[in-house]
Design a protein around this nucleic acid. Structure first.
Lengths: 109, 109
DNA sequence: AGAACGCATCAATTTATTTTGATGTATCAA
DNA sequence: TTGATACATCAAAATAAATTGATGCGTTCT
């Protein structure tokens, strides 16, 4: 039981780590905020965030590689949007971790 | 409304960023896993994780600075334990972010 | 076809994080 | 009070991540 939960955390760990790492950056969080309003092309993201194209592109790649966002090309434009499943996965992972910590506050002998 | 939520995310952003950054590391996640079993002194953590003392101490400091764990000295030993409040805060922050993304999946015009 | 646009990618540099080994400090035991 | 234990901290080196400016590639417009 406890082992199952622990095992689950272990298994999802590398995946969760990727998501956490991608999310744990102020610039990328800004991008996420922007995308929370809806799908958006890179040029609009540039306006919203004020980032240079190359710089933005770099961070979009990090976010995309983590699975937090997906892209879709249409003509000359590339549209990015959040993948809510990834966010849910992260929330679940933290919830699981919390569950497995029932006696985490118990003082040591 | 949406603005309130957005504002809330912005405000908590730096705080959440700190927690995410601290958590987003495989070694530190291992430490967190170990601490999920209960309060633990550094020497026991060394055994559990197999990390060298100095290295472990470094990561413990990162975790402590983020607020994810707290410490308590007793004699020669220092005991660390998880702060579940921080974990809850993180979960809440992600839940809020998700909420503010209701139309994130809506395709662009 | 040629030019402009939207974006990705690359190489070089800068900056931040991590690791390592050594040293410091407090506590306890002999 | 000397020595050992448990841990933190520091400086130097190693590694990783981010920034910048340039270049490339596919798409549209003319």
């Amino acid at each position: 039981m406890g082992a199952v939960i622990a095992e689950k955390n272990v298994l999802a760990a590398s995946q969760a780590s990727g998501l956490l790492k991608a999310l744990a950056d102020p610039l990328r969080m800004e991008v996420i905020q922007s995308l929370s309003e809806g799908e958006c092309c890179v040029c609009d993201l540039m306006e919203k965030t004020g980032l240079a194209q190359s710089r933005l592109s770099f961070h979009l790649k990090v976010l995309k590689d983590s699975g937090l966002i997906t892209d879709r090309q249409s003509g000359r434009w590339v549209y990015y949007k959040l993948d809510l499943k990834a966010l849910q996965l992260l929330e679940d992972w933290i919830a699981d971790l919390k569950k497995s910590c029932k006696n985490a506050a118990k003082p040591c002998s």
